Simulated scan of single mutants.
Amino acid sequence: MFGNFLIGLREGLEASLVVCILVAYLVKTGHRRRLPPLWAGVGIAVALSLAFGALLQFGSSSLTFQAKEALGGTLSVLSVGLVTWMVFWMRRTARHLKSELQDKLDAALAIGTGALVITSFFAVGREGLETSLFIWTAVQATGDGVRPLIGALLGLATSVALGWLFYRGALKIDLARFFRWTGAMLVVVAAGVLAYGIHDLQEADILPGLHSLAFDISTTIAPDSWYGTLLKGVFNFQPDPTVLQAGVWGLYLVPVMALFLLPQRSPSAPRPRTAGAPAAE
């Protein structure tokens, strides 16, 4: 449940902050009357994200077991790829997110109402679709009934509340630090989702090695025990992974975490020209 709460919190807060920045910029620049088109774009993005999540849930329920496992495994791998790209992108751009969004909003205001709707739609829609996909695959991975979904919804609700406090000025957030540490935790969650996806693809007979276990500690950490449930909810832990699952988990987690935690290089300032030196062509 905690893993899904983290997903909802981080992804939802990213979308909430985007909306807050857009709304605050319109208000401060005297374009309050242009808020309805902005909210229309946000509403369309949210509706599309909910529809996408419903399509995944209800569309997969009518499939055969093998087809459902193949779909779940493929979408798990896809969602991990998208989330990995997203955490690295946000790590790189968190400090400059506000200015980038304001530049896009200025361009949209110059074009007209339709451009404003499209700008807000794409600004929020990407996060919404990524969130729907990753939450769906994470819920499927835990397989713990409705509790993972409740955790994700609580995370989203918390992110909306934090976004509102951020907009009102009651909360100051170091975005770079927040997205750095939640991104690191999300990499751990993504590794578990990826391992689950590999197991799904093995059950669908797309990948081999379903019965080749790396280890089996089910007697030590029972899946139905409180600590087994906790480990599965937080890390998507499985006490009896296959060799391929364990290998892919390690090959993803170790290099991705190492790259993510590397200190970012500050752009070097241009060296001053020597007096009398000719300017570069």
Results as ranks from 00 to 15, higher is better:
208 P>G: 04
116 L>D: 01
80 V>S: 00
79 S>P: 03
208 P>A: 01
192 G>P: 08
132 S>H: 11
216 D>N: 09
126 R>M: 11
117 V>I: 14
180 R>Y: 08
138 A>R: 00
220 T>E: 13
166 F>S: 13
200 D>K: 15
173 I>M: 06
192 G>R: 02
140 Q>K: 15
124 V>I: 12
157 A>T: 06
185 M>C: 15
194 L>A: 02
138 A>K: 02
92 R>H: 15
177 R>E: 09
78 L>Q: 07
106 D>M: 12
138 A>S: 08
182 T>F: 01
106 D>E: 14
79 S>A: 07
211 H>S: 13
207 L>A: 03
155 G>A: 00
154 L>I: 15
220 T>G: 11
152 A>F: 10
133 L>F: 01
125 G>N: 09
159 S>M: 07
110 A>F: 14
181 W>M: 04
192 G>E: 02
154 L>Y: 13
172 K>I: 09
160 V>W: 07
183 G>L: 05
185 M>Q: 09
212 S>N: 13
200 D>V: 11
83 V>L: 05
206 I>W: 08
190 A>C: 07
131 T>N: 06
165 L>T: 07
191 A>T: 06
82 L>W: 05
177 R>D: 11
187 V>K: 00
195 A>L: 01
162 L>R: 04
108 A>W: 03
82 L>E: 05
74 T>V: 13
219 T>A: 15
208 P>F: 06
198 I>W: 02
147 R>H: 15
80 V>W: 02
187 V>G: 02
118 I>V: 14
195 A>K: 05
146 V>M: 09
149 L>F: 12
141 A>E: 10
107 A>G: 14
153 L>T: 12
220 T>Q: 14
197 G>I: 00
98 K>D: 13
146 V>W: 12
190 A>P: 07
150 I>N: 00
166 F>C: 11
217 I>E: 03
196 Y>L: 01
91 R>V: 06
96 H>S: 14
126 R>T: 06
152 A>S: 14
124 V>G: 05
141 A>T: 10
98 K>Y: 10
175 L>F: 14
91 R>G: 10
73 G>M: 01
217 I>Y: 11
105 L>N: 04
135 I>H: 00
117 V>D: 02
208 P>Q: 05
81 G>A: 03
85 W>C: 09
207 L>N: 07
95 R>H: 13
213 L>I: 06
219 T>R: 14
137 T>A: 06
193 V>T: 00
133 L>V: 05
106 D>Q: 12
141 A>C: 11
136 W>E: 11
195 A>W: 02
86 M>Q: 15
181 W>T: 01
191 A>E: 04
149 L>T: 13
214 A>T: 07
181 W>N: 00
172 K>T: 12
168 R>G: 14
